[in-house]
Amino acid sequence: MSDDRDRDARGRAENARPRDGLGRPLPHGSAGVERVEVRDRTPDEALADAQDYLDRDMPFHAHEVLEEQWKVAPDPERALWQGLAQLAVGLTHQRRGNLRGATSVTTRGADAIARYTVIAPHGIDVGGLLAWARALAARPEDEASVPSLRS
């Protein structure tokens, strides 16, 4: 059996298909949207890049930036970045019409960031994000606004 998967320079499986603005794979040869540049980012850069993607209604791409930060965050902040990434995934599910997924992932993300409300690291508007996430989880069929990561 041959392996027809796309591979990176190290031979690891990598999906090189273009994607739409919500991260759905498109047929090879389609235009697609830009991919998220994988690079080291400071927390401020990650938040700015993720917000830019959210403002352009590209929550899947915001999720990729936030997930990247989660993987390198110090232990005390890992749950924060994981929760932020989950909120972006929840919005992605909502935009794709997967309302059950939107509720589930958004609720997990909100639960993960809730403990950071008092300290609000990096100027993140944890309280505002919690209110936004709880509203989305309660009524995923409603049009969801784009969240603001910072106050």
Rank of each mutant, 00 (worst) to 15 (best):
L99W: 06
D125C: 05
L136M: 13
A135L: 15
Y116V: 08
D111M: 00
A138R: 04
G101N: 04
A135C: 12
R100C: 02
A131G: 05
A110D: 15
A135K: 14
N98T: 10
L99M: 04
I113V: 15
Q94S: 10
T106K: 14
T107R: 15
S104E: 14
R100Y: 07
W132V: 07
D125K: 03
D125A: 14
V105G: 03
P121L: 00
R108M: 07
V105N: 01
R96M: 02
V118M: 06
T117R: 09
A102T: 08
G97H: 11
R96T: 05
V105S: 03
R95K: 13
Q94D: 04
A137Y: 11
I119V: 11
R115E: 00
A138H: 04
Q94M: 06
N98A: 15
L129I: 01
I119L: 09
V118T: 14
D111L: 02
A135P: 13
G127N: 05
G127T: 03
N98Q: 12
R100L: 13
A114H: 07
W132E: 11
H122N: 01
A135I: 14
A120F: 09
R115V: 01
Y116D: 03
A138Q: 05
D125V: 10
R96E: 05
Q94H: 12
A135Y: 10
N98I: 13
A135S: 15
G123V: 00
A131M: 05
R100H: 13
N98D: 15
G101M: 08
S104K: 13
V126C: 02
I113R: 07
R95V: 09
N98F: 12
A114V: 09
A114N: 05
A133W: 06
T117L: 07
L136H: 10
V126S: 02
T103M: 10
A110N: 13
G109K: 06
V118L: 06
D111T: 03
A131Y: 05
V126T: 03
V126L: 03
P121R: 01
D111H: 00
Q94F: 07
A102V: 10
R95T: 11
G123N: 01
R100M: 09
V126Y: 01
R134A: 04
A102R: 09
T117D: 04
S104N: 11
A135D: 15
T106H: 14
G128L: 14
A133M: 07
S104C: 08
G109V: 09
P121C: 00
